[in-house]
């Protein structure tokens, strides 16, 4: 990786969107080329700090984050350079935020961190898209980390992201022991956990059922001329005829049905 490239970062790339307004004034389209900001003039530990004129500011206005569509038309090299620009910017913001906290000051415009983070996330998304496209073309697979449905040690199904191990699965006697007949997965503790877990799920379901039924009763009481089909569509699990017959659904008037 040639890091000296970053000296002339983004000379040809469109103007950095993420740049403080103090340094970057776009007055007209014709002037854009003049005011292009070239990052990394100096390599120093002072890059961990903001520019000197922003030190005592209470309000530092910046632009927006990079959007996905803007990043999609950039080359891989440009994205790579931009990543490091953003990485440095984020480090700078973290440093300033920490110093502000130490000195019990307000950190001006903390949303800058979110904007940088959003840009970085977008870059990663774009790179991922390209990676997947390349792998699909070359190998027919996505090249992403494979995910498998497994039963974990507590007897629950789980999405497992596959990873590499020094020891092959069939040789790992310690791991497989817990899945044996007298292993951990069949132990009393796990069974008890599973029982209680199922009870919890059941209770949630029961409460939801009762809540819906009561709600439908109240609706029928307040709006007896309601569209029953719509009600049925909204609450498919509720027995509407039963709700109509109940005492709670009767309003203080002569029943219409």
């Amino acid at each position: 990786m040639n890091f000296s490239l970053f000296r002339n970062v983004l000379k040809n790339v469109a103007a950095i969107t993420y740049k403080s307004n103090n340094t970057f004034n776009v007055r007209g389209v014709t002037q854009v080329t003049k005011n292009i900001h070239i990052t990394c003039k100096h390599y120093d530990l002072m890059e961990f700090f903001d520019e000197k004129k922003n030190w005592n500011e209470t309000n530092i206005r910046v632009g927006r984050a990079w959007k996905l569509d803007e990043l999609r038309i950039k080359s891989n090299t440009d994205l790579h350079k931009l990543w490091y620009v953003l990485l440095k910017e984020r480090n700078m913001l973290y440093t300033m935020e920490h110093e502000c906290n130490e000195k019990v000051r307000l950190f001006p415009n903390p949303e800058r961190i979110d904007k940088v983070q959003e840009s970085m996330d977008n870059i990663e998304t774009v790179i991922k898209e390209r990676n997947i496209a390349y792998y699909k073309l070359e190998t027919g697979e996505t090249g992403e980390r494979p995910v498998e449905d497994v039963v974990n040690l507590l007897g629950l199904s789980e999405k497992y992201q596959k990873q590499e191990y020094h020891l092959p699965k069939f040789m790992n006697s310690r791991w497989v022991r817990s899945y044996f007949e007298h292993g951990y997965i069949n132990s009393f503790a796990v069974k008890k956990f599973y029982r209680l877990y199922r009870e919890k799920l059941h209770n949630e379901e029961r409460k939801a059922r009762n809540r819906d039924f009561n709600h439908v009763q109240q609706l029928l009481k307040r709006f007896p001329d309601m569209d029953m089909e719509k009600l049925k569509a909204e609450y498919p699990n509720v027995d509407i005829e039963k709700a109509k017959r109940s005492k709670k659904a009767r309003g203080h008037f002569m029943p219409k049905y």
Binding site: L45, W83, L87, R90, N91, Y94, I123, E124
Partner: peptide, 8 residues
Amino acid sequence: LPNFWMKL
């Protein structure tokens, strides 16, 4: 694309 951060 390292996502390491450092603050001084």
